Computed example of a mutant assay.
Amino acid sequence: MILLNTLFTLPTPLHTRKANPTKAISASHQALRRCVCYDLHKQLIPYQEAWSWQKSIVRTRHSLLGQDEDHSDVVVVLQHPPVFTLGTGSSEEYLNFDVKNPPYAIHRTERGGEVTYHGPGQLVMYPIVNLRYHKMDLNWYLRSLEEVIIRVLSSTFSIKASRIEGLTGVWEIRRLLQ
């Protein structure tokens, strides 16, 4: 595992905490806001292993909340062996194969969305963000995630990516045109 030296500043200023709207986030938190990137992009990490690691990071960060030490956001960059993930509201009808005899592993996840395929050559970025330090708005959150991913792809991997109007996600235009 490589911890990149790259720290990204966040795209918008900090806001008050949701749990106590009268208490502003301290200046020390503002000075310490950063995003740490774990670069595992050359490795194939099984989905279940990556998911367990993410939950471990979240548990650790959650334990720091009472000490007011939860200062950095995290993004994990990796690839998976072939796997299908199904969000909480997804339907197996979108799988075009017999689920009793799948071509690859299938995992139900706690995220939203439908069926997603992950496989070798596809960079997957998992953000771990404490939204108490940000705006509590889904559209803002998704656009901010896209912006961070665009910045990571550009500065770390020299990949030019952008948004496509009307779609959620980040796209490498060159590959879409092929």
Rank of each mutant, 00 (worst) to 15 (best):
E49S: 09
E147W: 07
L95F: 10
N139F: 10
E69L: 11
R33L: 00
T6E: 06
L177G: 12
E146V: 13
P46S: 00
Y126K: 06
V170T: 07
V124E: 09
Q67L: 02
T60R: 09
Q54A: 07
V36W: 14
T116K: 00
D98R: 00
S52Q: 14
N101Q: 05
W171Q: 00
H29F: 09
L14W: 01
L44G: 07
Y126F: 10
A19M: 11
H107S: 12
D39E: 03
I149F: 13
L131G: 10
H71D: 14
S63L: 03
V83K: 03
V83F: 04
R59N: 13
Q178P: 10
N130E: 08
L95T: 09
L64S: 12
M125F: 15
I106G: 10
E92R: 15
S56T: 09
D39S: 07
N130W: 07
E172P: 07
A105M: 06
S63M: 05
S158V: 08
G89Y: 08
I150W: 04
C35E: 13
R61T: 12
S154Q: 08
A161Y: 02
G113R: 05
I45N: 08
I57V: 05
Q43F: 02
G87D: 09
Y104A: 02
V99L: 02
A161T: 08
A31W: 04
L176Y: 12
Y133Q: 09
V58H: 04
A27K: 15
I150C: 14
E93W: 08
S28E: 06
I159L: 06
K160F: 03
I159N: 03
A105Q: 04
S154I: 05
P81Q: 02
Y47E: 04
